[in-house]
């Protein structure tokens, strides 16, 4: 179980990006983190995975605990070793390596026998049959959806207990988004991996998660079980793009930035 207690993150010693975030990812659950651009979602993930430090970011207050052990301040490779792996935003793969080589990089840090490696690869190909066809292809030439599969598969090769996924739906066609999220659900169920999911696509994020947090400018402004949030009037309006149908619109409804303000508190 991952527990984040009131962390603050500062970039370059001056830019305060997270202003006291607390959240929890229970074992074998999917938790979503929603929010607009610049809310600090990716920063939260990088604080967990330890990648923050390479970007001159630092957790200055609070703590991040994984199964009761503090992990803030640890190096990224130690954190991967402990079973937390981040899937970076924007389908970042090793473009000039083949698909299978990309997948194998995910297991480089582990001591695996050839047979084990084979089995793990087959497991990934089980989730993404299309990758098996393309195993010898140069990854850079795959389509966007296939690249997203490679990146998720690569993370799976680390045999993680918790996957941090940064916008897996980014720039993908709706149908592809659906199938990617189906697989994410299966990974969660079949392999028992907990998932912390950062998304802008609130619709799909709320559908697959059990719990969700809403972030805005470095704070968590709302959280609750995903079904409840999906019914929340503010969420509906600002994230799901729904308004009451039929009802007369008053000027106050149109000016939603005013209502948003009370979240900034």
């Amino acid at each position: 179980m991952l527990q984040i207690n009131n962390i603050e993150v500062v970039y370059s010693d001056v830019i305060l990006v997270l202003r006291g975030i607390s959240l929890a990812v229970p074992e074998k659950r999917i938790v979503s983190l929603l929010g607009a651009n610049g809310a600090g979602k990716s920063t939260t993930l990088k604080a967990i995975s330890g990648l923050l430090r390479t970007q001159q970011g630092e957790v200055t207050r609070g703590s991040i605990e994984w199964d009761g052990e503090r992990i803030d301040g640890r190096s990224p490779d130690e954190i991967v070793q402990m079973g937390i792996v981040q899937v970076l935003e924007g389908r970042r793969l090793f473009e000039h390596l083949t698909v299978e080589e990309n997948l194998r990089t995910g297991a480089v840090f582990r001591r695996t026998s050839d047979a084990e490696l084979r089995r793990d690869l087959d497991e990934v190909y089980g989730y993404f049959p299309r990758l098996a066809e393309f195993r010898r292809r140069t990854a850079g030439y795959l389509s966007g959806g296939e690249q997203q599969m490679v990146v998720i598969g690569r993370a799976l090769m680390a045999k993680p207990k918790l996957m941090l996924m940064d916008e897996p739906s980014l720039g993908l066609a709706p149908l592809l988004v659906q199938s990617i999220f189906e697989v994410i659900g299966r990974i969660n169920e079949e392999s028992g991996v907990s998932i912390l999911l950062v998304e802008q696509n609130a619709n799909v994020a709320l559908r697959s998660a059990s719990h969700a947090y809403v972030m805005e400018t470095g704070r968590i402004v709302l959280d609750g079980p995903a079904e409840q949030l999906a019914e929340n009037a503010d969420i509906k309006e600002f994230y799901l793009g729904m308004t009451q149908v039929g009802g007369r619109k008053s000027y106050r409804d149109v000016k939603h930035y005013k209502r948003r303000k009370r979240w900034l508190g």
Binding site: T54, P76, D77, V80, F109, A155, A158
Partner: peptide
């Protein structure tokens, strides 16, 4: 960065 993210030292 990606290498770091998959646990490579």
């Amino acid at each position: 960065e990606v290498a770091r993210s998959v646990g490579i030292k």
